[in-house]
Design a protein around this nucleic acid. Structure first.
Lengths: 215, 215
DNA sequence: GAAAGAAATGACCGGAGGGTCAATATTGAT
DNA sequence: ATCAATATTGACCCTCCGGTCATTTCTTTC
């Protein structure tokens, strides 16, 4: 199974609108993301996706070979968008790493929630075992880069004596864990007592970087 | 839906073995846990569970009303076992909290993996949205007590000046996050590059409780 | 060993839903 | 307006699987 380009973009020569098809495709992907997110893969009906996208069920199969391909396309699409807005922030020369993270991470987190990326995170987390190859892609494209970046900052902090050596740079996931947990928690216990991702991350920084922002 | 006792333990008067049925039931629950864990709820076939338990499909319905009830029984059963071996360890009078945690948590973690509890954790995490009530129960029985305990230790550490106040006691999940992430990770990326739960927790302690165990 | 009650069996049923395709609608070119 | 190439439709098909139940297999009792 290749999740890369499993769509079949219909060629047009003397047919209907040239960009209409792109719009239809996009509507389908959007509808699919929402439905998969709400109901999960198994409980999502192709007819639901079609209805939500304002098309007939058969239309889906003009763009995607089957349900799994639709799911794969959703993930790949969102990941592709993610690559676009990728800026690699650097700390200012003598900025403490804690302060730097306090500055850059919260915007990233809220953007993660605004875009569909946190939804995709939860989707991959729950349905991942069903799509091993897709999971591998997700890991390489979405997870590993983040871990690499964390490792860079961790090394810097350790070099500057802000953290004890090795702990974070050996286990960079530690830094991502609070945010991930918060997103999963909010997916599961949506109704009552949602976690504030930002607040949790703040507390985490407090804990790790000690009494940095004495106010 | 009541997941409490959704089974129908068949009464015996002049029938076969008295404890045979209990064994059959246990075999079914065990087989179900394994299969649900491997394939997820939707992809689990009742016939698979039956085969794995060494019974016919129909037998399952002598003990559980339907597939959802079987799933619920699996979770409740494992949770019940968990309650049994519940000891509430206390730090020694002047033991640093970091050292205390280093002493008691690793055994708990490995026991969590030996028993089915970490599998159930992942099951609830992925299938939870399908079983809201069950998820609620899981949270109350399995999660909240742990968080309460963490909060107690966090307060102690803060009182003793080992941690800055409020950060951990306000967000006790921070302490559980590494272990949870590790278990989910290992479920997802089982094949390559598994995470060592214990090592990750060690690193977490290093990070948070600073240069405690200077060796 | 016969009888009776209980437990286990597995062929069978029904409906749900993924996927198909002949028919239809839509559009641009002429 | 007409045509041709494409896009869309939705009724239909067909498989699969959760759940049932008449039948068979045990086990205990007398």
């Amino acid at each position: 199974m290749a999740f890369e380009d499993d769509d079949a973009p219909p060629r047009r020569r003397r047919g209907p609108s040239p960009a209409k098809t792109a719009a239809t495709r996009q509507a389908l992907v959007t509808a699919a993301l929402a439905t998969f997110f709400e109901k999960g893969f198994a409980d999502t009906r192709m007819s639901d996706v079609a209805a939500r996208a304002g098309t007939a069920k058969g239309t889906i199969y003009l763009y995607f070979t089957d349900k799994a391909a639709l799911f794969g396309a959703v993930v790949v699409e969102v990941l592709r968008d993610a690559r676009a807005g990728r800026s690699v922030p650097r700390p200012r020369p003598d900025e403490p790493t804690g302060a730097f993270l306090r500055r850059i991470v919260p915007p990233l987190l809220s953007e993660l929630q605004r875009s569909g990326r946190s939804q995709v995170l939860r989707l991959v987390a729950s349905e991942g075992t069903r799509f091993p190859e897709l999971t591998r892609v997700y890991r390489q494209v979405a997870i590993e880069p983040v871990l690499r970046m964390i490792r860079i900052y961790a090394r810097r902090a350790e070099r500057r004596g802000e953290l004890r050596p090795h702990a974070l740079s050996d286990q960079p996931i530690l830094m991502a864990a609070p945010a991930v947990i918060a997103m999963l928690w909010n997916g599961l216990f949506a109704g009552d007592e949602p976690l504030d991702v930002a607040a949790m991350f703040e507390a985490w920084l407090d804990l790790v970087f000690g009494p940095v922002p004495e106010r």
